[in-house]
Structure formats: structure tokens, C-alpha cells
């Protein structure tokens, strides 16, 4: 662990995070967020999602700009590969969530990060989505995340960073625990 605490800077505003935890613990209404995305079909399996507005801290909020994500299926699915597959976007979501957590926890624990990289792999038996075998599920049969972290900390402290990041990760929770999903048609 670093001895001079003032030199550790992972670009995470820990004071703000701790302040938010303190304030929202006392005001649970303000802690209620709604995350949103919209999606338009383009052509074939290609669609484009747009993410801009969300709700939180008791008011409508906006990202600095709208973000767009193209999704499609690859050539081997006889598609045009205009974007990553939706399941790959899920992996990107998990990776980004865990990595943000690693940075935040490292800052909290006064660990200077030099580099953090993650590789992800998820197995899937596509007979599930093809409806070829009713016993095969549609989703991943497992997700494997491998981190390589260069930081001013012992290997054990680095493992603890990654473990704590999982404990506080939203996407990790979404993937490891069931969630009710309601899909309606207007």
C-alpha cells in the first residue's frame, strides 16, 4: 500500500462517492434511479440503440451527449456484422462495470493503478437460441473474466480489489442473480 496517500490518483473522486453514500443513506428517495435505452431496428438483425436520458437524484438527467450502439450478428450467422452482437455488448457492460469498480476501490484503498486490462469470454451453446434443443438455455453457460493489473500493491491486495469490485458491481449482480423482465407491446 502507498505510504504517501496524497500521491494516489486513479481519477476517481472518492470524496464525492463517499459523500453520496452518506447523503443517499439518509435520503433513499434520491437514490432511486431509472436507467433507459431506446432501440430502433435498422435492417435484418442490425439495430441501433441510443442512450441519453436517465432519472436520478429526484430529477430527469441527461448524459453530456447521446451515445449510440450498433448491434448486429456476424457473417457466420448470415448477417451483415454492422455491430457487436448483443451478448458481446453484455460482456462489455460487465467489463466496464467491474473495471470502474476496480478503479474506485483502488482509490478508496489508496492503491495507485498503472494499468488495468480485462479479457472476457462467455460460452454459449447456440442450439438454445436456434430452438434446436429444448434442454439448452439461450444464455451464457458461464462467463470468465481475467484481469491483468499493474498496481502499487501486493498480489493479494490486487485480488481483494477485484473481489470487492464484484461485490459492489451492478452488472455482476444483474448477471449472477435473477431479474424480473417485463416486455410489453404498445
Amino acid at each position: 500500500m502507498a505510504t504517501n496517500t496524497s500521491t494516489v490518483d486513479n481519477g476517481v473522486n472518492v470524496t464525492a462517492l463517499l459523500g453520496a453514500r452518506e447523503a443517499l443513506g439518509k435520503a433513499p428517495e434520491a437514490a432511486q434511479f431509472k436507467w433507459r435505452a431506446s432501440c430502433k431496428w435498422v435492417k435484418g438483425t442490425h439495430s441501433r440503440s441510443t442512450i441519453e436520458g436517465y432519472y436520478g437524484l429526484g430529477a430527469e438527467q441527461k448524459h453530456r451527449r447521446a451515445f449510440e450502439f450498433d448491434a448486429d450478428h456476424p457473417d457466420v450467422f448470415a448477417s451483415e456484422d454492422q455491430g457487436a452482437t448483443p451478448v458481446e455488448l453484455v460482456l462489455a457492460g460487465l467489463a466496464s462495470c467491474l473495471t470502474a469498480g476496480v478503479a474506485a476501490v483502488a482509490q478508496m484503498r489508496q492503491i495507485q493503478l498503472r494499468s488495468v486490462s480485462a479479457t472476457l469470454e462467455a460460452g454459449m451453446d447456440i442450439r438454445g437460441i436456434l430452438g434446436a434443443d429444448a434442454d439448452v438455455r439461450n444464455g451464457f453457460d458461464g462467463v470468465k473474466v481475467t484481469y491483468e493489473i499493474d498496481a502499487d500493491a501486493s498480489p493479494e491486495d490486487i485480488r481483494a480489489l477485484v473481489a470487492q469490485s464484484q461485490k459492489r458491481s451492478a452488472v455482476y449482480d444483474i448477471l449472477t442473480n435473477p431479474t424480473n423482465v417485463t416486455v410489453e407491446v404498445k
Binding site: 493479494e156 485480488r159 473481489a163 464484484q166 461485490k167 449482480d173 448477471l175 449472477t176 442473480n177 435473477p178
Partner: peptide
């Protein structure tokens, strides 16, 4: 198994976080 997170249609659902809770405890 992982934490019990649901019971649906006579099936128990466990969290996929078993590995990490064991890692946290070991550390």
C-alpha cells in the same frame, strides 16, 4: 450452492456469485 435468490415454479434459484463470496472470505 450460491446464495438463495429466488424460488420460481418449484425451482430454487441460486446466485452465480459463489466463487466471489468464497474468494472474499479467503482473502
Amino acid at each position: 450452492a450460491g446464495r438463495l435468490v429466488g424460488v420460481s415454479q418449484g425451482k430454487l434459484q441460486f446466485s452465480g456469485s459463489l466463487r466471489n463470496v468464497c474468494e472474499l472470505a479467503d482473502l
